[in-house]
Simulated scan of single mutants.
Amino acid sequence: MVFRLAKPEDLIPGSISRYFDILSFKSDQFLDKNKDYIVPEHQDLLSASKCFCVAGLFHPPREDGTKSSKFSSIGTRFKGVLEAIRISCAGYPTNKSFTDFVNRFGLLVPEVLRTNHDKKDACQKILNNVGIPGYQIGKAKVFLRAGHMAALDTRRAERLDIAIVYIQRTTRSYLIRKRFLAMANLAVALQTLCRGKLASKMYDDMKKRSVSLKIQTNFRRYTLRSSYIRLQHAVVLI
């Protein structure tokens, strides 16, 4: 048997359509492997198995002397089982346990993850919220029809895309704000340094001006006093 993944436009009669893609196969000599007869030694070994499931599938042949009873093939022996599987797949081909279903699709209804919801009620709430028709909820599993899993996976992928975009936007905003705050703090530090340098220079200038004024004042006082003493001496002399 040869399998290959095909595109929808390549779909031909005899192909299997699955929810994730289209699976094509060749049916040449498809049933030859089911024509193998069961070896009597293998029949006895399987019938004597301690596993009741295996022993129940391989009952000892009836001693009625017919050829069909002595030489039954694997295909004819499990024909009923294969038919049951085919009917099950046609009705509800996909089933998941409540825990697996909630863990995979719980993000579609986040409140079922934040609170202690019953798993069965959580599954029903998720399916009703998404709008999936025709599902069935058993005692321990959720049974879905063909195409339901694809719809759920599509909604899950959309929700993940939205979450990824939101996370990226939030991360970019955080990084840009962090960079802006760092630049603002740097600008404030530079402004503080510049103001400090300017204040220090202004203080030095004021200090120099004050010293200069004091020198000028003392010099004028000395000059005026000298002139006054000379004048006083001249008056006394006269």
Rank of each mutant, 00 (worst) to 15 (best):
T223H: 05
L127N: 00
L181M: 09
R225V: 01
V235D: 06
D204S: 14
V112H: 08
Y166N: 12
R195A: 12
D118W: 00
M149A: 06
Y222W: 02
T171A: 12
R230N: 08
G138K: 05
K208P: 00
V112F: 06
R156D: 02
S173Y: 08
A199T: 06
M206T: 00
L213I: 01
T192A: 07
Y174L: 11
Q191R: 09
D205M: 12
V130M: 00
I132C: 01
K120Q: 08
D204E: 09
L181H: 10
R195F: 13
L181C: 11
D121C: 06
A146N: 07
R159I: 05
V236N: 07
T192F: 08
R156M: 14
D161W: 10
I229K: 13
R104C: 15
M149E: 07
V236D: 15
V236Q: 12
G106C: 04
A184W: 04
L160W: 05
R195S: 07
Y135D: 11
K120T: 04
D121I: 00
G131R: 02
N129K: 02
L107M: 09
R114V: 04
G131V: 00
G134W: 07
F143R: 01
R169F: 13
Q168A: 10
K139I: 03
I126N: 02
K207D: 15
V102W: 14
R225G: 07
R230D: 09
I238E: 00
G147R: 03
K139S: 05
P110S: 05
L213N: 08
S200W: 13
E158A: 08
Q136K: 06
T170R: 15
S210W: 04
G134C: 02
N129S: 04
A163E: 14
E158V: 03
V165T: 13
